[in-house]
Nucleic acid binder design. Structure first.
Length: 553
RNA sequence: UGGGGUGUAGCCAAGCGGUAAGGCACCGGAUUUUGAUUCCGGCAUUUCGUAAGUUCGAAUCUUGCCACCCCAGCCA
């Protein structure tokens, strides 16, 4: 990781963030290896693919300059945060393939953050306010009108200090008082209208327990934590642009040098994919999914369980770019990255989801055939596959009433059994209801893969497994995904495509299957998948419905 | 109606005064023992939200206008 560049030269900037950093380096503010970032999740849920972009930006930028990136848990609100989430976050970062220089928490800095608050009070830059939350709201003004100053704004330093210490000592109830920065109630930027920087919260913190009953607000704590960690460039998403003046105010007022610099970029959005922790949490809590790592979830652990390689996620992040324009990627872009990676790296296996017995009437005994594990990679090697008289093929690969351009097995037709022989349909058996229960075929001995001298042309190639030697597999079936705007109402439903029947959380790959032993493998039948999607535009939750849908037309 | 941002193809996105990169998607065609892959070709040329202006020359500079996003938590 990290591009190499000669000492004294700057790496080529590939996005606006790197341009800014290059300028900072060029103007002597810092040396490349001093670049430091941080990935700052709040431990109140699992990481999702949107976080993957943030990690790519933060870890990637630091690596590019030979600098460092910390893992920083933003745990300033004990009412929402849990240790379970910090463990899961750590695991997901490692799975994605990133390593942090240092792991720290906002709570590590509670003491200095508190001391800085006293410093603000001493210098007359903060005051204890007795207004209720409601009153503060009512005096903040509106977007077009200035706010009015708190009647407590001009308390003496001594009184403020006394009150603040009493707040810390637990003398007051939640919401009874708060500490506010003294900035400008008439600022056109609402964030600067004497923002609350400390609130009273008699809640147990997942790390500090009951040591504190006052907790700093994000806007106040973040610049301090950045500074104390040595962060030089604090990369965050666009919605914090309005907060940058406050970020800078804290740094300047407290005399930080060098002062960390906040740079904002657009967060990741993907069509039809819910990227809101709030809704994901709701799905989990209401039991609509099996958990945060349900394969239908856009969480990193969900993607992992879906069989999506971390490298593909990283590749996706690198290809979508980093910019400030609000945007929404098509899901197909992500799929392309996954397919590309899987095609190059995934070992191929034949699998049958809906088995139909096929008997090779003129074949006796068994024989071993070589099967390339990955035809795009010579080094992948081969596996032995046993061919015999009794096979299974996919039910949908045989048709008595084939649609036009049906290349697979049909009445009186031939098809190649992948990597084995060409077979000709000789007949079939049905049950009382007329359903096909068995296909009878003859094989052409001269058509063996790799040494075909038969001269017979088979347009179609289908998968098969040996009925006597195959490993039982189980395709995990999931209920089709959310069907209406039940979750999240309007916001959620707005994410629906006009054409899609289901809202989905991103589950669409047909190559999810799970072996009985629990080892996931991929069925890389992207052809079916594409075809199906073009025809129906449906969101598919598992392989069976995918193939059924394919057969419909 | 205040402030902060953003507008380049269906979707991402380069471009930073010298005559519109690349990827995804899509459309042709070739090869193919995965209808996959691979490969070739096409895909903004009265055009860079729009209207004027500066300039030999503008997506790039100036001005006006339009559209969209974010902000009035003791959330992050």
């Amino acid at each position: 990781m990290g591009d190499n560049f000669e000492a004294g030269t700057l790496p080529e900037a590939t996005n606006f963030i790197e341009q800014i950093i290059n300028e900072d380096i060029a103007t002597g503010k810092l040396r490349p290896e001093q670049v430091q970032t941080r990935f700052p999740p709040e431990p109140n849920g699992y990481l999702h693919i949107g976080h993957a972009k943030s990690m790519f930006v933060n870890f990637g930028t630091a690596a590019k300059y030979g600098g460092k990136c910390n893992l920083f848990f933003d745990d300033t609100n004990p009412s929402k945060e849990k240790t379970e989430f910090v463990d899961a976050i750590r695991a997901d970062i490692r799975w994605l393939g990133y390593e942090w220089a240092r792991e720290c928490y906002a709570s590590d800095f509670f003491t200095p953050i508190y001391e800085y608050a006293e410093q603000l009070i001493q210098t007359g830059k903060a005051f204890v306010c007795d207004l209720s939350a409601e009153e503060i709201k009512n005096t903040r003004g509106t977007l077009t009108e200035p706010g009015v100053e708190s009647p407590y704004r001009n308390r003496t330093v001594e009184e403020n200090l006394k009150l603040f210490r009493e707040m810390r000592a637990g003398k007051y109830a939640d919401g009874e008082k708060c500490l506010r920065a003294k900035i400008d109630m008439a600022s056109p930027n609402v964030n600067m209208r004497d923002p609350v920087i400390y609130r009273i919260l008699h809640a147990s913190h997942h790390r500090t327990g009951d040591a504190w009953c006052i907790y700093p607000m994000y806007d106040y704590a973040h610049p301090i934590c950045d500074y104390l960690q040595g962060v030089t460039h604090s990369l965050c998403t666009l919605e914090f642009e309005d907060h940058r003046p406050l970020y800078d105010w804290v740094g300047q007022t407290l005399g930080f040098s060098p002062k960390p610099r906040q740079i904002e970029f657009a967060r990741l959005n993907i069509t039809n994919t819910v990227m809101s922790k709030r809704y994901l949490k709701k799905l989990v809590e209401e039991g609509k999914v099996h958990g945060w790592d349900d394969p239908r979830m856009p969480t990193l652990s969900g993607l992992r369980n879906r069989g999506i390689p971390a490298a593909a996620v990283r590749d996706f992040c690198s290809r979508i770019g980093i910019a400030k324009a609000q945007s929404e990627c098509e899901y197909s872009y992500f799929e392309a990255c996954v397919r590309e990676y899987l095609n190059a790296h995934a070992e191929r296996a034949m699998g049958i989801v809906d088995p139909l017995p096929l008997t090779v009437v003129n074949h006796e005994g068994e024989e071993e055939l070589d099967f390339d594990k990955n035809p795009t990679d010579e080094g992948a090697g081969v596996r032995k596959v046993t061919f015999g008289k009794h096979l299974f093929i996919e039910r949908s690969d045989f048709s008595l009433d084939p649609p036009p351009k049906y290349f697979r097995l049909k009445k009186d037709g031939v098809v190649r059994l992948k990597n084995a022989y060409i077979v000709r349909c000789e007949g079939w058996n049905t049950d009382a209801a007329g359903n096909v229960t068995e296909v009878l075929c003859s094989y052409i001995p001269e058509s063996r893969s790799g040494s075909d001298t038969s001269g017979v042309k088979a347009k179609g190639v289908i998968q098969w497994v040996n009925a006597d030697a195959c490993v039982p597999a189980e395709v995990r079936k999931y209920e089709s995904l959310l069907r209406d705007a039940e979750y999240g109402g309007q916001d959620f439903s707005e994410r629906m495509n006009e054409n899609s029947e289901h809202i989905f959380l991103g589950c669409a790959e047909p190559y999810l299957a799970e072996a009985a032993e629990g080892a996931p493998f991929q069925l890389l039948r992207t052809g079916y998948y594409k075809t199906c999607r073009e025809k129906g535009g449906l969101v598919l939750s598992e392989i069976v419905s995918l193939k059924d849908n394919f057969n419909k037309k």
